[in-house]
Computed example of a mutant assay.
Amino acid sequence: MLHAVWHRRHEQGRAELEAAVQDAADDPEDETAVAALCQQIKRALLEDEELLRELSALLPTGSGPVTVTASGERAIAAQTITTAITGDNATIQP
C-alpha cells in the first residue's frame, strides 16, 4: 500500500513520504513521527480519489462470517477482547 502511495506522489511528495517513513521506522514509539507518516498518507488519499479506491479494494470488506471457537478448560474465544482472566485467585490492578 505504501508503495502505491509513493508511486502516485510527485517528486517533492515522494521525498516527504520517504522522510516520514524513515523517521517512523527509526523510532516506532515516537508518536510525532508516526503521526507525520499518517498525515502524509492521509494527504495522498485526499488528493487522489483513484488511489483511495485502489487501496480500499485491497482491504478486507468484513462482510464474511466470523467463526470463533474456544476449546479446553478455561478457554476463551471472542472476535474482539480486551481483558480475559482464567486463573484462580487472580488479582487485577489498575
Rank of each mutant, 00 (worst) to 15 (best):
Q79C: 06
Q39E: 13
L17V: 10
T69D: 09
A19N: 11
A36D: 15
A78L: 10
V21W: 09
L17C: 12
T61A: 12
S71A: 15
A35V: 06
A70K: 10
V68F: 00
H10K: 12
R43Y: 09
A44P: 09
H7Y: 12
A78C: 11
Q22G: 00
P60C: 03
Q39I: 05
A78I: 11
L17E: 01
A77V: 04
L55S: 01
A25K: 08
A19L: 14
G64T: 13
I76C: 06
A24Q: 00
T83A: 06
E18V: 04
V21T: 05
E50Y: 05
T69E: 12
A77I: 08
G72N: 02
G72E: 05
A78K: 11
A4M: 01
P28G: 12
D23S: 08
Q39C: 11
V21E: 07
A20F: 00
A20Q: 02
Q39S: 15
I92M: 14
H3C: 04
D30S: 02
A36F: 04
I92D: 08
A20L: 09
K42I: 05
A75T: 06
L52Q: 14
P94T: 00
A44S: 14
P28Q: 05
I81P: 01
A19T: 12
D48C: 07
E50G: 02
A35W: 00
Q40E: 15
I76K: 00
L2W: 09
C38N: 14
R14S: 06
A25D: 11
E73W: 08
A33Y: 08
G87H: 08
E18G: 00
C38W: 03
A20C: 03
I92R: 12
E11P: 02
T91G: 02
I92F: 13
T69S: 07
A24F: 04
P65Y: 01
T32P: 05
D26F: 01
R53M: 02
S63H: 08
D30C: 02
Q79N: 13
R9G: 09
L59Q: 08
A57S: 15
G72F: 02
T82W: 07
T91P: 02
I81T: 10
S56P: 01
A84R: 05
R43C: 01
A78T: 11
E50W: 03
L55F: 01
E54N: 11
R14K: 15
M1P: 06
Q40H: 04
G62T: 11
R53G: 01
E11L: 14
L51R: 02
R8S: 04
